[in-house]
Design a protein around this nucleic acid. Sequence first.
RNA 1: GGCGCCGUACCCAAGUGGUAAGGGGGAGGUCUGCAAAACCUUCAUGCAUCGGUUCAAUUCCGAUCGGCGCCUCCA
Length: 477
Amino acid sequence: MPLKLFNTLGRELQEFRPLVPGKVGLYGCGPTVYKYAHLGNMRPYVVHDVLVRFLRSLGYEVTHVMNVTDVGHLSDDADEGEDKMVKSAEELHKGVLEIAAFYTEAFFRDTQRLNVARPTVVCPATAHIPEMIELVRRLEAKGYTYSAGGNLYFDVSKFPRYGELARIDLDELKAGARVELDPNKKHHADFVLWFTKSKFEGQALTWDSPWGRGYPGWHLECSAMSMKYLGESFDIHAGGIEHIPIHHTNEIAQSEAATGKKWVNYWIHNEWLTLGKLKMSKSSGETLTVQTLVDRGYDPLDYRYFLLGSHYRSQAAFTWEALDGARAALAGLRERVLALRDKAAAPVPADALGAAAKARLDAFRAAMEDDLSTPRALAELWGLLKDGAVPPGEALGAALEMDAVLGLALASFERKAAAVDPALAAKVDALVAARAEAKKAKDFARADALRAEIAGLGVELRDSPSGTTWTLSGRAP
RNA sequence: GGCGCCGUACCCAAGUGGUAAGGGGGAGGUCUGCAAAACCUUCAUGCAUCGGUUCAAUUCCGAUCGGCGCCUCCA
């Protein structure tokens, strides 16, 4: 079965065919680095990671490019458009690039904790200003631009296919419905390619250009950098669904106007994480980050499992209860895989699996080929692990094969007794020994009292024929 | 005003024109000194509501109610 992806361009499931056989160029919208990324921000990176992992498991050589937006951001509407980088810098009394470096580092720390592989190329916008200027020069040479009020604009009327991705009809667009109109624009959908004048004061970073000292328009970086690293046409562009009407629409216009070629073949857009009453978005309330989860005693991979439990094109409803469910499920997967590792000498390689295991692995792949249906893929993983007809070595081999795509780190998981505070460990070990004595003496009342005492330390006991083992309970005491 | 999404059991969540995956959780059981773990059984004649199309709809169409997103550089 071929891989099918839902292409926003066309709004249908399409068979994936790369431009160059065996190779895939993928551009994923990266972070804006003026604050910590919250859990909602992290969803697309997990989605992109799963896509990349799956493509690689199918044998493709994937070049994954991700931008880091470290220039030019408005703050939200409450501030009437103060530059976000500038605002953060002022708040923290630091330079803009210093802020960007700080949050970039924080971002990659978080993605790493979510087991998101680092993209092949990570490109900061500020390091690619010459490429952006060059792109604007090409647009200017072809007559797609005009200048007004000190800024250079893209003229959407010159690009007939404008809005194809978002299915926007320029004549129907209601001008100024929510935003104050820029009087310099000929059409309100026109957008700035290069600023020398802005209603936003205090732009910290400016560059010389043929149009004067200033800074690039906000859509330029993705066009310029993707083409630099992936060529003027490439396979997949992925990002959040909110980018369809403006950001990606404008990227397409300026890219294809410049090159005269089709820019991107497949557009993949993920839906948002919704929070119900928790509200963590821009304006108010608590911002939930990966660090928040760690502080509350969760493994970041619990969140990854939670995300995989819903399809990337569906809104995912985050609740603590749902996250607890994901944590319990992931713990169950780990237990089963650990048990298999105890039973099996070694994982059987994918090409040596018996019929039952192979059928499970095939079903897993079929689910993933159907527009990356991770919920069904997870169900197939569970089916495999519960299938008594599959020998342990084969179950382990197939499970690890699946996890290479899911990225739940099942292969490397170890029981975390070693990570326990040594003082606590010594105390628990002593209590366990005392309880063993009591049990030996058939003093079950004392044994149960000791069990209760141990439980009070946040530790769970497990008796087995070969002795008693213990682990920390799920939640921190 | 425009564009778009969703409403499936206690929770999260797949899915299909032919009779509801998976996980969490609950209940019962086996096992266990007691637990835990594991294993077994079980928990929606039902998929927001009302109409329509159809031999057949949760799945298609329409309306209604409810929730959400984007239209500003939020992922």
